[in-house]
């Protein structure tokens, strides 16, 4: 474990806490893409298949459980919670995310570390996570003004993989045979997808204005 990875995991946890706060405090999920939340639930379920078989540390296991449970709880909440589901922007959240699942799985069948179920699902989860934010970014552009908590949620979600990139660079230089090319390249793509969001988020912070993404 290094400081970059810890910072990344804490930022990722922060994004989930901010989203939970928004949904429970405001009893609303307006501006949140259910499709992105469903994609994240698939990412964690596909990546943590080793939850019950491999034990690295208490921290690793606890965080995996937190990510799986929180992502499923958010999807459940947005689908079935009486008050919250009414605030879901159904007509704006129209990204065809099934293509992202299909494309990521096909890519995992081609590029993986080993042709085993575990490794193919792991690569699938890495590729899917890289594009999982797309429905959310599209929804933000369509819904015009973005409330603070939603903006912070997306910001932390984008920042966490940026810390992971620093972690991979650090491990590359400090560990002999460290070659996480699948995760590193995918992580770069993932962080790059947030570039324009980060730009407008920074502008709104600098001008102390409401975050608005150009349609």
């Amino acid at each position: 474990m290094n400081i970059f990875r810890l910072a990344g995991d804490m930022t990722h946890l922060m994004s989930i806490l901010v989203l939970l706060l928004k949904i429970y405090a405001t009893k609303s999920c307006s501006g949140i893409s259910l499709k992105t939340q469903e994609l994240y639930a698939v990412v964690f379920l596909a990546r943590y298949l080793d939850l019950l078989t491999d034990f690295f540390s208490l921290y690793n296991t606890v965080m995996k459980v937190v990510f799986i449970v929180s992502s499923l709880a958010i999807v459940w909440c947005m689908r079935y919670h009486r008050a919250v589901r009414r605030t879901y922007d159904r007509e704006l959240d129209t990204f065809r995310h099934y293509f992202l699942i299909l494309g990521s799985f096909v890519l995992a069948l081609i590029f993986h570390e080993k042709f085993t179920v575990r490794e193919i699902f792991w690569a699938f989860s890495i590729y899917l996570e890289a594009v999982a934010i797309l429905p959310q970014l599209v929804l933000l552009q369509r819904s015009g003004n973005v409330d603070n908590l939603t903006g912070q949620y997306v910001f932390f979600l984008g920042a966490y993989r940026g810390f992971y990139i620093l972690n991979w660079i650090y491990r590359y230089f400090t560990e002999a045979h460290f070659g996480r090319w699948i995760a590193s390249i995918s992580g770069l793509v993932q962080t790059a997808l947030y570039a324009d969001f980060f730009y407008y988020y920074f502008l709104s912070w600098k001008n102390n204005a409401k975050l608005k993404l150009p349609a």
Partner: peptide, 10 residues
């Protein structure tokens, strides 16, 4: 088990 095949990151 070889280290690199196991994914120790979240």
């Amino acid at each position: 088990v070889q280290k690199e095949s196991l994914h120790d990151e979240l």
